[in-house]
Structures are given as C-alpha cells and as structure tokens.
Amino acid sequence: MLECREVTKKYGRKTAVDGVSLKLEPGRIYAMLGPNGSGKTTLMKMIVGLAKPNSGEILYNGSPVGVASRREIAYMSTEPYFYAWMTAGDVGKYYRDFFEDFSMEQYERLLSQMELTKDLKAKTLSSGMMAKLKIAVTMARKAKIYLLDEPLNGIDLLARDEIVRCVLDAASPDVTLVVSSHLVDELEKVADTAIFMKESHLVSVCGIDEMREQSGKSVADRYREIYGHGGVEQ
C-alpha cells in the first residue's frame, strides 16, 4: 500500500503540490483527474522518486519510497523520455536490463498488438506511436503499482481502446493502477475511484459507483462542480 502524508513540493516560488495526504490501495484503479498544472504529474513523480518533496513523506509498504520501491512501482510519463539513438527493441532491452519484473515476451506481444515493430526508431515516432510504445514498455513490467500519466493524451480513438484494454489487463487484486487524465469520460467506466486535484491541492477521493448510487452523479458531473467546466481544456 502506498501512503502520502502531507506532501508538499515547491519549484522555486511555485507550489506544485500542497499538503496532499492520500492512500492508494491494491486492487483498485484510480482516475487522477484535474486540469493541466493541478499537480498530478508532480505527485506521480514524487511517488516514483523522480522528484523529492520539500516536506511530508511518501511511504510504500511502510518505508519511504526510493531505490527499493522503484523495483515495484512503474511510472509512465506524458513526455517521451527514451534516448534518441534507441529503437523500440533497444527500449525493451533497456527495461530488461534494469527491471526484474520486465517480460520481453509480454513486451513483444504488446508491441504487435499495438502494431509496432522493434526496428522503429524512437526519434521518428509520431506522438500516437510514441504513446503506444511508452504504454507497451511500461505494462510489460509486472509491477505492483502503475502510475500512468495522461496515457490517452493526443491519441486517436482506436488506440485509446487498445490502451484502456492494456490497463484493464494489468488489473488484479494485488495491483494498484493510477491513471491521470484531464479527459474525464475516458476513465469513467474503467476506474473505480476518482482522485480530484485542483490548483496543487487534493480536493476529494471518491468511489465512482458510490457517487452514482448516492447522488446520481457521474464523474463528469462532479468534475464540473469542482472545476466549473466540463473537463475540456479552456
């Protein structure tokens, strides 16, 4: 289980994440929602140890996150981050070299499912293909926690289905999935819990079905209430 306690991160004068406390439990799929700049990415980066909080702490199974937790926590960033010289095959080899939970067979299966080949140069991929490559290499790990930052951003409808299926495929009672998005509808039926971030604060965490049953509200309705618009970037 992962726990954030009063986590704050500042970049210069700007506060990116402000006093966020949050527990992520296994067996759940979280939709982390909020407009760009609401602190989703920074929070994810702190959980995986890429960024270090100014105050507060992040615990994975009771101990602070760091080198050991990175073995079990997989993170996929929005932006491409592979070395310019790499092909899709090199990306796979790199992950195999560093992550014990990475499966080359699974990677190859996902690549062909996404209609990608190993000889494709990372540098020359279109944004849609890059998004597929990133998700394939991330989901080929057998991690305990997956943090996927905007995996559906800039991707056509068909590819979205592939990616959503990929996410569902990884779901299991001992796995935690966190998918961030500013597109609410995409995640509505896939996620069971919604995390709403606004202006570097955590606004609320709520069960999606409970919300519908108790107040007849969908995630999109709640999103509108919180942000004052319908989840479309303004």
Binding site: R28, I29, V164, R165, L168, A171, K189, D192
Partner: peptide, 17 residues
Amino acid sequence: VRDLALQYTINPNTANR
C-alpha cells in the same frame, strides 16, 4: 470476471460486482 471487464471495458471490481 477479467474477460467481462475487457469485453465491456469496465473496472474488474465492477465486473465482479
């Protein structure tokens, strides 16, 4: 349960329910 989740693209916990 897993296949139902994939078929309807819904959360596996929902499928279980």
